[in-house]
């Protein structure tokens, strides 16, 4: 399963204007990620991992080179096509959860399905399934302010996973969690990765996350300096 390529990056360069000059955030990245991988972009701040996640997530476009995600060339997508790619195939998990504070756990998880225009019965089935995966059954009517950090991140994962996306991009997902919650979250994501065959790509420098990764892509100064696969 992991041999089927989901992300193909060739000679990716990403530059940002800075004053009168330019700042090169990514400098000639070549990378492929297969379906079902549990991989992480690892590196210190400024190494380019979030920029790379942005480009892969179709939130940004390459300055040169090519990035193909699920057979879509990111640089050639219009804003609407990029939004459609994100809506149908990508899930995002953020460091600060970014849940809708006034909506319940159920409604937060249901939101991506509303965007995809699923019918009420199908939505209900899918939301309840996601809630069960993440062990949130007793929190279904709670609102984010009533939840702990770990529970909030579980809701965020359920929201990202409910539509069963091909690729989940997680930017520092455990940064606001304690060790116990971090491990719980990571174990959950690992299980989902194995059971649903969803590809996970992390941007992290957290040792706890790194210990779970099956592929570790080290970045420094916008370049891949090491790419390790963990054999278990």
């Amino acid at each position: 399963m992991e041999n089927s390529t989901i992300i193909r990056i060739e000679k990716l360069v990403k530059k940002f204007p800075m004053g009168k000059g330019e700042f090169t955030a990514l400098n000639g990245i070549d990378l492929t990620v297969g379906r079902g991988e549990f991989a992480g972009l690892i590196g210190p701040s400024g190494s380019g991992k979030t920029t790379l996640l942005n480009v892969v997530g179709s939130l940004d476009v390459p300055s040169s080179g090519s990035v193909t995600v699920l057979d879509h060339s990111i640089g050639e997508l219009s804003a609407k096509e990029a939004a459609l790619l994100r809506k149908q195939n990508l899930g995002f998990i953020f460091q600060s959860y970014n849940l809708f504070a006034v909506h319940t756990v159920y409604e937060n998880i249901e939101f991506p399905l509303l965007l995809l225009k699923y019918g009420p019965a199908e939505r209900k089935k899918m939301v309840l399934e996601a809630i069960e995966w993440l062990g949130l059954t007793d929190k279904i009517r709670s609102k984010p302010p009533q939840l702990s950090g770990g529970e909030c991140q579980r809701v965020a994962i359920a929201r990202a996973m409910v539509k069963k996306p091909s690729l989940v991009l997680a930017d520092e997902p455990t940064a606001n969690l304690d060790a116990a919650n971090s491990h719980n979250i990571l174990k959950t994501m690992e299980v989902l990765n194995r059971e649903l065959k969803t590809t996970f790509l992390f941007a992290t420098h957290d040792e706890k996350v790194i210990s779970y990764l099956r592929r570790k892509i080290f970045l420094a100064d916008g370049k891949v300096i090491n790419d390790e696969r963990v054999t278990s």
């Binding site: 997530g57 939130l59 609407k80 939004a83 459609l84 994100r86 990508l90 970014n98 939101f111 965007l115």
Partner: peptide, 14 residues
């Protein structure tokens, strides 16, 4: 701002 941001990130059109 955050809510609109997450909605855009999740694939909702502007």
């Amino acid at each position: 701002y955050g809510e609109v941001g997450i909605r855009l990130a999740m694939g909702e059109n502007k």
